[in-house]
Design a protein around this nucleic acid. Sequence first.
DNA 1: CTATTAGATGTTTTT
DNA 2: CATCTAATAG
Length: 681
Amino acid sequence: MFAEERADEVLAELNPEQRDAATHDGERLLVLAGAGTGKTTTLCARVAWLLAQGVRAERILLLTFTRRAAREMVARARVLAQRAAPDAGPVLGGTFHSIAHLVVRLHASSLGLPPGFGVLDAGDAADLLDLVREEQGQAARTRRFPRAATMLDIYSRTVNAQQPLDAVLERAFPWCSEHRDALGDAFRVYCARKRALHLLDLDDLLLHWRALAADEHIGAGIAGAFDHVLVDEYQDVNTIQVDIVRSLADRARVTAVGDDFQAIYSFRAASARHILEFPVRFSGAHTIKLERNYRSSAPILDVANAVSAQDRDGYQKVLWTEREGGRAPELCFPCDDGEQARAVCERVLSAREEGMELRAQAVLFRTGHDSDVLELELRRRSIPFVKYGGLRFLDAAHVKDFVALLRLLDNPADEVSWFRLLQLLDGVGPARARRALDALRTGDASAPALERWEHAAAHVPEGARELAGALMRELAGAACAGAPAGTVVERLCAAIAPLIRLRYEDGEVRVSDLEALAIAAREADSVRHFVSELVLDPPSSSAGLAGPPHLDEDYLVLSTVHSAKGLEWDAVHLISAYDGNFPSDMATRDDDGIAEERRLFYVALTRARRRLHVYVPARYYHRPSARDDAHGYGQASRFLSEAVQRLFEHTRPDDATAPLLGRGAPPAGHRVEVSVEHLFA
DNA sequence: CTATTAGATGTTTTT
DNA sequence: CATCTAATAG
């Protein structure tokens, strides 16, 4: 009853297409939602409508690819569900990976996994690959062997694409082809090692979910849990995720929402092909297009439409708005990075003067370090900012050290963590850590950490043994205490603190980072879940857990375009839009690569509500921090075609020295004299 | 063998 | 700016 009223209220605010999408009563629905067309609103309205139809909240599953989208959507859906039926369960939702983790946890024993299995983030996985690579010996140490992070990229792409290594190397990593055999060996050992050590990487989560879904005994149970599956960002799914959705579709109705023109994750084997083929693979699907834009002014949409029109493939969409007026977008040509940074700062500050908060403005860029020079300028001018997609909290060495300790609590078999922790000890480097690891392997892998430590201790220099022993005793104490997660983590933090202080120059700062982590752990119901949550949903910037700026303060947003997807700001500054950087040189080998860069460019443009500034520095430096000044002269991005450029107002940043000239020229023949000679008379 | 330093080098993007 | 390598000292 109440649910129906709520639903009517929500539906009344939708336009006809959105309402059709929200209330479609069929088995399969595809919503092609252009940028800024109220996708999330529509999806949430659909949840409200489903609830009003009597669907129980806990029988609805919401899936997305990115964490940010998941958070927003699930939060809104839960509020709706709570109002509609306060006594019903919550709507289940999250990223594919987080739901996979849930499913894998519930079926761990069927997968041959102990309850304490660990989840590796990209850094941990790279560490394990590094460990394996070292063991492979000299063969792998020859020239230009890919580094661990690259190895992981190759591995991950291969797994996600479900294609043979050869094909992936040839297509995406041609410069690594010569190491095909060594890579293949390393990957096989990597898989075996993960299994032996009870570790899953992020790709494994999806693979295991898919395997469970395909299982004759278990699959039906999982699929039977839901009546409706709603998948957001469908343009970013890969084959494995499609398989998962298909298995759920055996029992559930499926709604897929996305925009093929915003498909930007082909590097993890996602493909817009899946959204294009949806009507074929899910027969009887009904398709609805959303093209009315509520976000941007008309001049900005003109630019976006002109860029998307450069690509004739896919579903043609033309965004339109009823909003009138709006400023022409600006195309700015600074002479270099430095002038670009100053130009951005000036525009940001003057918009701020006019009442536009810093947080309503964003600077977007293709790659993480495009903002290096700008960051310096912002710091110099004390303009607060937060950078997304930059260095992550979890990547910091001391945080990894601490997490390694927490991992041993539930999984004493975890060699990656042992290897890391051992090297934290004074006098222990890779060689001794490795020998200690070998000794460790002679014992029972699932014995408690303290017991395992006894084997390793002999390989640690005497000086460090006592400190390490104390740490291990704390770990043993924490393991059997049954205390709340917050207390356990706090205790272990205190135990590892002396080692951190000894190891790092700025130990004290780092210890306080860990203390912040311990406080965050109070929310968790177990250390095990705390760690896996940290891996699956890490704080997006270091500001998430510690350090300024605080969220209630005003700050400028810096973000890669990838991280900006789904977000919007009043003003958007797209910097370093020169050919070679955007599109990236690495992607211009083939048409698919260029098309994807174009979509990325389109995503950047469509984030802007009222003002759009695109910057093309004429000169760029190859190594911004180096002493040399190696540089090149850039052309504007090829996506800024003549037709597109005509839609912009073209500017050059004001010459900063002009004001020093003053007004008017001095009289002809006028001279200014300088002398110091009188001082020496 | 580890720690420390100086010097070179580097193909993006995320879960 | 990291992060890796090579060279050197402890």
